[in-house]
């Protein structure tokens, strides 16, 4: 059987390794003086850009009103069936509000479809990526965890308006 030819045969200097090791150390050394990209999470937190899709949250207006009108479109479009909405009636002009709004974070795949379909700009992908829970029940986020003042979401809303 003919001996297989390697793609690239090493030269003599490469074969003895020493110069290559020195080369490698050189690269390491030069990187020590370049800006660093790693961070000491969790002491240092990563602040994602506006394009980032963290957990979906619901926008709460300045006056404390819920933006969501419980149309159920996010729930319908969600490919993972993560969202459950139960509508109720209010006296406000927009008749409907979410009596119950739950997102199962074990189901959510952070696709952002819910955000895209929402006619009220009410469900927004936040920058929150810290999602840890120890049982299935805790993974279901109710209204108390979902509503976030709209001021904290300006970044993303701006991004959406530019890109949509």
């Amino acid at each position: 059987m003919a001996e297989k030819k390697r793609l690239k045969d090493l030269s003599f200097w490469q074969k003895i390794y020493i110069p290559e090791i020195i080369n490698g150390l050189g690269i390491t050394l030069s990187n020590m003086f370049k800006p660093s990209f790693t961070m000491e999470y969790p002491e240092v937190k990563f602040e994602p850009p506006a394009s980032y899709r963290g957990r979906p949250v619901l926008a709460l207006e300045e006056n404390g009103e819920e933006r969501c009108v419980a149309c159920g479109l996010c729930s319908r479009v969600c490919p993972a069936l993560a969202i459950e909405v139960q509508a109720g009636e209010t006296d406000r002009e927009k008749e409907r509000y979410p009596e119950k709004f739950e997102i199962n974070m074990l189901r959510c795949i952070f696709c952002g479809f819910c955000e895209e379909v929402c006619p009220e700009e009410a469900i927004i992908m936040s920058k929150d990526y810290e999602l840890a829970f120890t049982n299935r029940e805790d993974a279901i986020y109710g209204k108390e965890k979902l509503f976030v003042p709209v001021s904290q979401l300006q970044d993303r809303i701006q991004f959406l308006r530019e890109r949509k």
Binding site: A70, G72, S75, R76, A87, G88, E89, E95, R96
Partner: peptide, 9 residues
Amino acid sequence: FRFKARVWD
């Protein structure tokens, strides 16, 4: 029945 459910659900 008002607001009880979406027809597609």
